[in-house]
Computed example of a mutant assay.
Amino acid sequence: MSTSKRSTVALITGGNRGLGKSMALHLAERGVGVVITYRGNAAEAADVVKEIEAKGGKAAALALDVANTRGFDAFVEAVKAELGGKLGRDRLDFLVNNAGIGAHASFAETTEEQFDALVNVHLKGTFFLTQKLLPLISDGGRILNISSGLARLTLPGYAAYAAMKGGVEVLTRYLAKELGPRKISVNVLAPGAIETDFGGGAVRDNAELNKMIAAQTALGRVGLPDDIGGAVAMLLSPESHWITGQRIEASGGQML
């Protein structure tokens, strides 16, 4: 692992698999201590921590249901304990709101239960978890919210999901404005189609779908988790601090 002059710590929600795992590994490679959250798979999260620690990095995993705001106070206390323990800090430098769920249904068939689940995870959870963690984020720190290329593209079946991500993008601009006096920069990263198990792994496992997306992408392929992990590390690097209030899409030029 590389080391930095001043140790920094990132909290990544949903960091036990997929894009969140890649983000954690990329940041750890740059000497950033990492706290990842998981909702149900503690073993997956433990494996990520072990992988980082085996390379000389610092990491911890905490359970969190981002849809359950009633659990946020206890979670903040758990974060404080981890920071003061093996991570050796009293503040977070980076917060990455990555945890998410998917739902595919036409507008006409989307249920209120599906809609509410998406609101609670993507919009309400992001809003109030960030609010609760704000006292722990260092002045001059960063917040990075994860959106989706579907907030720009229009594909039938994703009206509710994309609407939540659109809300996250608007929220990002407001956070950038309101947290500017603390020199906290806030941006939103919007991945395009990526080969993960998200949405049942359709992009990864459906060869016809994968080929179709690749044909509509300027760089000629579907994205991989490391494409996003690397982009996150770049956006949280010291050189990117002057970027704030921006939507950055990492899609390889999908449907330009």
Rank of each mutant, 00 (worst) to 15 (best):
N97Y: 10
A231Y: 07
G20I: 06
K86N: 12
L133V: 01
L133T: 01
R247W: 13
G125C: 06
G200F: 11
K183G: 02
G229I: 03
N210H: 14
K124D: 04
K50W: 01
L153P: 05
V232W: 11
V9P: 00
N145G: 06
L144Q: 04
G200R: 00
D197G: 08
S185V: 09
Y38N: 01
A99I: 00
L189I: 11
V32T: 12
A190L: 14
N97D: 12
G245C: 14
T69K: 02
L136A: 07
A81K: 13
V168H: 02
E195C: 14
A42F: 14
A231K: 06
R204H: 07
L129G: 01
I12R: 01
Q254E: 15
I228Y: 10
A176Q: 05
T126I: 09
I137L: 15
A215P: 10
G20K: 00
G125K: 03
G201R: 07
A24W: 00
P238A: 00
I146R: 00
L175P: 04
Q216K: 13
M1Y: 09
H241E: 13
E112R: 13
T196F: 04
G149D: 11
H26K: 13
G18N: 13
D93K: 03
G245T: 12
R89W: 03
Q246V: 09
G15D: 05
R39E: 12
G15C: 05
F127Y: 15
A24L: 06
L235N: 03
E239N: 09
L150P: 02
H104L: 08
L189Q: 05
P225Q: 00
I101A: 10
R182D: 12
K165E: 02
I143M: 06
A103F: 06
Q131E: 07
I228F: 12
L134T: 11
A60S: 11
A159E: 15
A202T: 14
D65K: 00
A28F: 08
R173D: 08
I12T: 02
L64V: 10
T37E: 01
I143W: 09
A160P: 15
R182H: 12
L136E: 03
V119A: 09
G166C: 09
A162I: 10
T13Q: 03
L64S: 00
V79D: 03
V121N: 01
T3F: 14
V34T: 04
T111I: 13
S185W: 06
E51H: 10
L175F: 13
D227G: 07
L171G: 09
A54M: 06
L123I: 08
I184R: 06
G230Y: 08
G85V: 05
D226A: 10
F115G: 05
I194L: 11
A233S: 14
A78C: 09
L153K: 14
D73P: 15
H241I: 13
A233P: 05
S148T: 15
D197F: 07
L25R: 02
I137T: 04
G71M: 01
G192W: 08
A162T: 11
L129H: 04
N68C: 08
I36V: 15
L153N: 14
V9M: 03
P191S: 03
G149V: 12
I243R: 06
G18H: 07
S251R: 09
